[in-house]
Design a protein around this nucleic acid. Structure first.
Lengths: 146, 146
DNA sequence: ACCCAATTAATTGCATACAATTTATATAGA
DNA sequence: TCTATATAAATTGTATGCAATTAATTGGGT
């Protein structure tokens, strides 16, 4: 590949991911706005609905986010009454995040979100599943190397 | 798919893209740091190396970014001496971005970036190309619908 | 009990993203 | 010409991301 092709924007896998990730987030925005959530708040709740009573550390490992991002995010969700933040009695270094009843209830409303996302688009579910697996495989290879 | 599977973090195509996009950006960070660039600054320069003398509007169309993101970004690149910003004489509403000599020179150093990215990883170039095309196809379908 | 390295969150500072609004300019139509 | 509309950037405000540092706590070794 020559130098022109090498640096072409449309030939960069990074740009494809970067742009597509933001486009997908834009699809979510109006749907999540109905629940009063941003995209990052939503995936944080997805993680908590899957496993509650986790430390910031554990949550960060799932979401690949550090405390610099999570601390203000969790404080916001706490102020919205969706979760509580409390130090672990047995190890005060850990801060344990727990969903409130309101936070648990919100899950019911969220169940319709995935289905609504690709409404009106020409996208096959099978295509999405195949693509997701390839992306996850790529990410594993990146993580193995670093 | 039941409600548990539906909302599982690892089943979300959005999260796969979101996480993978950030992981790829992390691969770039140390390499681009040698050039004194952030990732967004880098893709902006990729666009300009491909086509110089463009308005903020045109640049934004390529990068899928609006003036709210581009204005401070371009001011920063201007302060680094890589480009100039000047109003179009024939239509003062447009601001035209032009690479300086220094900005053009930087391209030579950038040519080694793509090759260095996946060094030491178990990733096949063919896999990346195939994946990139699928991602671009997905993005086209999203854009068609909105 | 005391010291020290390790661990976990929080904080700080910088750089995006993006919606919404504002400002400046251009153009079409009365 | 005058005005209403449209267009392009800039600005404002909010929410991330993340590196680097700081603060609090813990556990190991003496």
């Amino acid at each position: 590949m020559n130098s022109d092709e090498l640096l072409k924007l449309d030939n960069q896998i990074c740009f494809a991911f970067y742009a597509c990730s933001r486009e997908i987030t834009k699809l979510y925005r109006p749907i999540l706005a109905e629940l009063g959530l941003t995209y990052t708040q939503y995936i944080t709740l997805l993680a908590l609905w899957e496993q509650d009573n986790v430390s910031v550390k554990e949550l960060g490992a799932k979401l690949l986010l550090d405390s610099g991002t999570l601390t203000p995010l969790l404080k916001k969700l706490e102020s919205m009454g969706l979760l509580t933040r409390a130090r672990d009695k047995s190890d005060e270094r850990h801060l344990i995040v727990r969903l409130t009843e309101k936070g648990q209830e919100l899950r019911k409303q969220a169940e319709c979100v995935p289905g609504r996302l690709y409404e009106g688009t020409d996208i096959e579910p099978e295509e999405l599943i195949s693509l997701r697996k390839q992306v996850q495989s790529l990410m594993n290879k990146i993580n193995e190397a670093t």
